[in-house]
Simulated assay, not measured.
Amino acid sequence: MPVDSTAGTRLLRAPRGWRRVPSMAARMQTFAWVELQKLRHDRTELLTRTVQPALWLLIFGTTFNRLHVINTGSVPYLEFLAPGIIAQSALFISIFYGIQIIWDRDAGILAKLMVTPAPASALVTGKAFAAGVRSVAQVIGVLVLAYLMGIAMTHNPLRIVAAMGVVMLGSAFFACLSMTLAGLVRNRDRLMGIGQAITMPLFFASNALYPVAVMPEWLRWLSRVNPLSYEVDSLRLLLVGIPSAHPWVDLGVLALSAVVGIAAASALLRRLVR
């Protein structure tokens, strides 16, 4: 380690290469922990967020299960629907995460974070991870409700943990998508409008409510480029046992989407503080 002979002090070099990985991971963990600490100020948030998926299962699910208007083969419709509702709930949580970034900017917090040695990608990854952890609560809530309703869902703890990982990957992408939009529009009200405009199309242009086979051809094409569809396929495989045509492709698409989302959000984050 080089020493400054005039001052008698040591000059510390910033870590480079693989040496940066531990410090990068520590910074991401710190940012994620800060985000999760916000739940301490409103512990009812996790409970209130389970109301919407409960309504989808109790009202929409039970009604269409009796009507038999959607052909899901040998799988009861409620079993087919439950993983899709988990993915939908996680989407609704994470798609508005960019609003928090704009709130931080307006409060002067973001500017202070951006002048720290931590790169923008650490901040984005930390927030994306926090969005995933919040979404995991939806997995637990829907599973408990499904057991109470007599829906045949897995009791295998390893499969449940794997499903939580899938939800975290999907939530990370949609949170990064929201933060990317925040970097583009830089306005809270405008971002809220865009989020509301794209949430339902993302949901209905996936296989969360109905099989791909019953979709018109143009909707099938949209479903193939929608990461939510791959998340739902993985959740159905893990929680219900409905086989997926390409399970590793589903995970690969989710992981790649999360990486691309982090890169895009990191590149645009500094536009918010200009």
Rank of each mutant, 00 (worst) to 15 (best):
M149C: 06
G150H: 12
G150C: 05
G150N: 01
I151A: 09
M153H: 04
M153R: 06
M153G: 08
M153S: 02
H155D: 15
H155N: 14
H155V: 14
H155S: 15
H155C: 12
H155I: 14
N156R: 00
P157H: 08
P157W: 10
L158S: 14
L158Y: 13
L158A: 15
L158V: 11
R159Q: 15
I160R: 08
V161E: 09
V161N: 11
V161I: 15
V161G: 00
V161L: 13
A162V: 06
A162I: 10
A163Y: 06
A163G: 12
M164V: 10
M164T: 10
G165T: 09
G165M: 07
G165L: 01
V166C: 05
V167N: 09
L169V: 10
L169W: 01
L169N: 03
L169C: 11
G170Y: 09
G170R: 00
G170H: 00
G170A: 03
S171L: 09
S171N: 02
S171Q: 08
A172D: 01
A172I: 02
A172N: 03
A172K: 04
F173G: 04
F173Q: 05
A175G: 03
A175R: 00
A175L: 08
C176G: 04
C176S: 10
L177W: 10
L177V: 06
L177T: 07
S178A: 12
S178N: 10
S178R: 07
S178L: 03
M179R: 07
T180K: 08
L181V: 08
L181F: 07
L181K: 11
L181W: 04
A182S: 02
G183L: 07
G183T: 02
L184G: 08
V185I: 14
R186F: 03
R186Y: 04
N187P: 10
N187M: 06
N187H: 14
R188P: 06
D189I: 13
R190S: 14
R190K: 14
L191M: 10
M192C: 12
M192A: 14
M192E: 15
G193T: 13
I194H: 02
G195I: 00
G195W: 05
Q196G: 13
Q196S: 14
Q196R: 13
I198S: 04
I198T: 08
I198N: 07
T199K: 01
T199H: 12
T199W: 10
T199E: 12
T199M: 13
M200T: 13
M200G: 08
M200L: 15
M200Y: 15
M200H: 07
M200R: 05
P201F: 01
P201Y: 08
L202P: 01
L202K: 03
L202Y: 07
F203L: 15
F203Q: 06
F204M: 12
F204L: 13
A205R: 08
A205L: 13
A205C: 12
S206V: 00
N207E: 15
N207Q: 14
N207D: 15
N207K: 09
A208C: 01
A208N: 05
A208E: 10
L209T: 05
L209S: 04
L209Y: 07
L209A: 09
Y210T: 04
Y210R: 12
Y210A: 11
Y210V: 07
V212W: 07
M215Y: 09
M215A: 08
M215D: 00
